[in-house]
Every structure is written in structure tokens, then in C-alpha cells.
């Protein structure tokens, strides 16, 4: 393309930005016009609220503290889920006997949404940290197991043959062929699990917590402060997007043979 783009082209290039800007402007007017009363804060109010929360505590801690409280729960649960779930999924996918033993029990639990565990978790573990970490654990555990399991089951038999003809024994087939070929599926499971985890921590915190982003938006509701809720929501979205991007970088580092797949 040459340097001189036609006006139409320039317009279409900036269309996404324009549309976002337009939405914000419409939102601003709608909010200040008073059609929605106090229930719709203006974008300016949201920004103000955000800046306030950076330094001023809501409940026990400031914004950063709430984010960290949620992150800590998610990361603990995620680490445990991955450490147990992936080996279990790999074992199930590789060994027919292990599959026959684990799969039926797993299938009872699999369709139950992690959030439906909240009441039982509270009954079992009270309302402190444990039930929240437990819920997040369930959220990440199921996709971790499932994806490792399907990933290894769909190992190309041709590659297994190739390794066998090169003299690989069973252990080497597993380590050198099955596991690497399951890695992309495993990472898809981790992506999935991490975003479920993030959702679960919210739900768990909304049911009962004293800090965390879920607490933050629920507090906003109790205080009838929509600006606080919307700020919280935007932060939840941003953190969720950031951890997804982070995991994608880890994947690119672990699986350098995978061609770039654009969004």
C-alpha cells in the first residue's frame, strides 16, 4: 500500500477507536442527563472512583490489596489443581486400566459446575480462606484433567509408530511422544481452568468474604455505589485478560514448535 490512504481507508482504520469513543460519550451524556437517576454513573465518576480506591481503603484494604487477595486464592488453587490434575489426566489417557478406574468417578463430578460446590464448601470449611481456594481448585482441576486426558488420547499413532521403530520403550514413548503431543491441549485446559478459577473466586467472594474483588463489587452494591461496581468489573476484566495473556506467553515459551495461531 502506498502512503496516501484514501479518506475512507483512514476512516475505517479509526472506526474501532471512534466507536469506543462514541460509546463513552453517549454513556457520559446518558449518565449526566439524569435519565437513569443515580443507577448509572458517568465514565468520569468511574475514573474518579478508581483513583480514589488506589489509595483509600474499601473495607480492610485498598484496591491493590483486594486484587492481591483474589490473586492469592486463585494462584494457590491453580497450582494445586495443575499439580494433581495434569498427572491424573495423563495417567488416565495413557493407561486403559487407570482410565477404567478413574473415569466413571470423575464423570459423576465433571458436569457439576464448580460454583455449585460453594454451599458444600462453606459447610465443610467455614467461611475463611479454605472454601474459596477449594472452589477455585475445582474450577481449575476439571479442565486440567480433561484436557490432559483428551490430549494424550489423541496422540497421533503414526508418531508412536515412528518412535517405536526407532527403538523407544514404553516409558520413552510416554515421555518423548505422548506428553509433548498433549502439551497444546494441556495449555488450552490451563487457559480454561485459569479463567474458570477467576470466575469462581468472584462467586466465592460474593457469597462471603472480607477482601477480594468479589467482595469489592458486592460492597459497591450494598453501598448503592454503581461507580464502585463498574470500576471493580473493569478491573476484574483487565486482570482476567492479563493472566490469559501471561499464560499464552508461557505456552509460547514451552511449545516453540507451535506455529503462531492468531486470534
Amino acid at each position: 500500500m502506498n502512503a496516501k490512504a484514501s479518506p475512507a481507508e483512514i476512516f475505517s482504520r479509526f472506526l474501532p477507536l471512534t466507536s469506543l469513543l462514541l460509546i463513552i460519550i453517549v454513556w457520559q451524556f446518558a449518565a449526566t442527563g439524569g435519565y437513569f437517576g443515580k443507577s448509572l454513573p458517568s465514565p468520569v465518576a468511574v475514573v474518579n472512583q478508581f483513583v480514589d480506591m488506589l489509595a483509600e481503603p474499601v473495607g480492610k484494604t485498598i484496591l491493590g490489596g483486594h486484587i492481591w487477595a483474589s490473586m492469592r486464592r486463585v494462584l494457590t488453587a491453580f497450582a494445586v489443581a495443575v499439580l494433581i490434575g495434569i498427572p491424573m489426566g495423563l495417567l488416565m489417557g495413557w493407561n486403559k486400566k487407570a482410565e477404567a478406574i478413574i473415569k466413571p468417578i470423575f464423570e459423576i463430578f465433571r458436569p457439576i459446575p464448580p460454583i455449585a460446590w460453594i454451599p458444600l464448601a462453606i459447610l465443610w470449611f467455614g467461611i475463611e480462606e479454605t472454601p474459596k481456594v477449594f472452589i477455585c481448585f475445582i474450577g481449575a482441576f476439571i479442565p486440567a484433567v480433561m484436557n490432559a486426558y483428551t490430549g494424550i488420547r489423541f496422540t497421533d499413532p503414526l508418531l508412536l509408530d515412528a518412535a517405536r521403530s526407532q527403538g523407544a520403550n514404553l516409558r520413552q514413548l510416554f515421555k518423548e511422544v505422548a506428553v509433548p503431543s498433549a502439551l497444546p491441549a494441556i495449555f488450552a485446559g490451563l487457559q480454561n481452568g485459569l479463567s474458570l478459577c477467576w470466575m469462581c473466586v468472584l462467586a466465592a467472594e460474593m457469597v462471603g468474604a472480607e477482601e477480594g474483588v468479589g467482595y469489592l463489587i458486592l460492597r459497591g452494591m450494598d453501598m448503592s455505589n454503581p461507580a464502585m461496581i463498574i470500576t471493580g468489573m473493569l478491573i476484574i476484566g483487565a486482570v482476567g485478560a492479563l493472566i490469559a495473556v501471561g499464560l499464552r506467553y508461557v505456552e509460547r515459551w514451552v511449545c516453540p514448535w507451535k506455529r503462531e495461531i492468531s486470534m
Binding site: 503414526l158 508418531l159 509408530d161 515412528a162 518412535a163 521403530s165 526407532q166 527403538g167 523407544a168 520403550n169 520413552q172 518423548e176 511422544v177 509433548p180 503431543s181 502439551l183 511449545c255 514448535w257 507451535k258
Partner: peptide, 27 residues
């Protein structure tokens, strides 16, 4: 007995070096 496959059957996660030397690694 060395086998060359119709559909190549190279390990996508191994480099050329890794693919060629895999038999020796197994041994």
C-alpha cells in the same frame, strides 16, 4: 530395521537434530 514413513512422521516438537538423533537417545 530403519523405517522411513509415507507421511514423514517427524516429531513436531523436536528440531531436525532432535528428530534425527532420537533413536540414539532412546538407546
Amino acid at each position: 530395521l530403519g523405517l522411513v514413513f509415507q507421511r514423514m512422521a517427524l516429531m513436531p516438537w523436536k528440531t531436525v537434530m532432535g528428530n534425527v538423533s532420537m533413536g540414539l537417545k532412546f538407546r
